[in-house]
Amino acid sequence: MIFAADSAFWQAFTQQTIDGLAFGALIALIALGYTMVYGIVELINFAHGDLFMLGCFLSLTILAAFGLGGLGFDATVKDPSPVYVAVVLLTCLLVAMPFCGALNFAVDWVVYKPLRTAPKLAPLVSAIGVSFIFMNVGLFWGGAQDVNFPNLIPDTNLMSADSGIRFTYKDAMVFGVTVPLMIALTLFVQYSRLGKAMRATAQNPTAAKLMGIDTNKVIGLTFAIGGALAGAGSVVYALKVNTISYTMGFQNGLYAFTAAVLGGIGRIPGAVLGGLIIGLVRYYGSAYVGETWAGALIFGILILILVFRPTGLLGSTTREKV
């Protein structure tokens, strides 16, 4: 049957693969925040998905301020030139990244740092609390309904029409932002001084402290970097999906957290791999199994992998965290 409809089948399959990878790249960007924080303080920062949500609302507010519409304001700039749009979007990125980074840093400073020596459950429950606080801020910011995010990146296909495959500017933007960020992060953690300090703190905080590393500062900066990645993710996500809502952090955060666990929590390449797998499973699942089963499928695969490889795909027993 597959052979009978081969060309149409492969076309659809390639399309779902491209879209799934683009979605997965976004999830991976959020997953990096989970995995880095877990790697260094062994805390699952449940508020991370909601931080990402706040980044989306900030971006929308910036768009509204620049007259591109959003949050109840009508677009005052009619048919904005691509240069204007590019400048505004770059501003979004340059504001949302430090904003989310600083917010995450502040949360660590205020909420998690005093609990550093407390039982593991205490910061975990606090993280859930922070998540709820963020959600309510989002509710206040954007209202209870789904909010439209202006469609600023055209859906124009970059492939030829007869190939039957769609690869749009949006997809190009997703890969264009996420891939360099991931490469930069890997290089940073691997080669920079701070990166080395982060890895040292992850391996053994006490020993790192003895070597003269200010572990609290290092942990704080890890939160900031993870937050900044979520900020970048929020801009790209909002531009691609075009709908944001105060509840969006939950589902996307859950996917990202799953991606981090799937790839081996604490491992940066693992989070990327996990994100891409989840993107593909979500898209193939919807296309070939059924939309309602896509969610179950993702968690089914997670369970299978954890049963046979408890440390995750790239996790090793003597793992080197972050």
Binding site: Q16, T243, Y283, S286, A287, E291
Partner: peptide, 11 residues
């Protein structure tokens, strides 16, 4: 609860 339905709409 899903945020987007692109794979479904593609189908």
């Amino acid at each position: 609860k899903q945020q987007e339905f692109k794979p479904l709409l593609q189908k």
